[in-house]
Design a protein around this nucleic acid. Structure first.
Lengths: 112, 112
DNA sequence: GCGTATCGCTACGTTTATTGTAGCAAATGA
DNA sequence: TCATTTGCTACAATAAACGTAGCGATACGC
């Protein structure tokens, strides 16, 4: 298994071996709870525990791991006294998959 | 592939407990290789083995699992003699996160 | 027919990721 | 002080993903 050291940071994003940014991003977003966290922070800051509540009581272990990754990626920041919230970049990312919301509505009807 | 009304529930999508479509979709897309598969099928059909090649030799076990999920979800179909390709719905989904591509380019520059 | 190559797909043992529960130290306010 | 809440971590258990091998079916050329 060839491993390129070109990964963004020490957490060696899975799809980044190709050196294509989109792969690194898809890889980052394709980890459990990542998309959900970004989604739940859309309306403002949440404390780690509040975030856990809205994320269906996900384990703090993995939430912490994801939050670290998202902070490293520059999508999320921790504001003392406020909690976790999206950075400007993070909000930009959120908006790129905002259309998913409307898509999901149409999609679910097809499922039923 | 037979599609029952409860097809979506068969694999009990993780975030679907809330009943909110976007959660079910984020959950589906937040599984390993799912986003990548949709991305790699953007230019047309690929056989299961060709798909494996472009997906960094991912294990056929998990690719098969994902392809089944994506077929159940109606995003991917298997065309005999051609291979796997996106359905009309799948292409629509792909286009909703197409802006991610450009975003990823900008994002990666920030990382370096 | 025969061999060979490819297709979609699965078995199975190992490794990695995620979960669930409990709890820590620091900060805050009463 | 005491009680809460914060971000965060330890640790054992479970679930997901990986890697290798190979199946049956199909389609070729010979």
């Amino acid at each position: 298994m060839p491993k390129s050291p070109s990964a963004a940071k020490k957490h060696s994003v899975r799809g980044s071996r190709t050196g294509r940014p989109i792969m690194a991003l898809l890889d980052l977003l394709g980890r459990r709870w990542t998309l959900r966290i970004i989604w739940e922070l859309r309306d403002g800051a949440l404390t780690s525990r509040a975030l856990r509540e809205v994320c269906d009581q996900a384990s703090p272990t993995i939430l912490q791991t994801r939050l670290s990754g998202l902070r490293e990626a520059g999508f999320v920041e921790l504001v003392p006294g406020e909690g976790y919230c999206l950075t400007a970049l993070g909000r930009e990312l959120f908006e790129t998959f905002l259309p998913l919301h409307r898509f999901a509505e149409r999609w679910i009807k097809r499922q039923e």
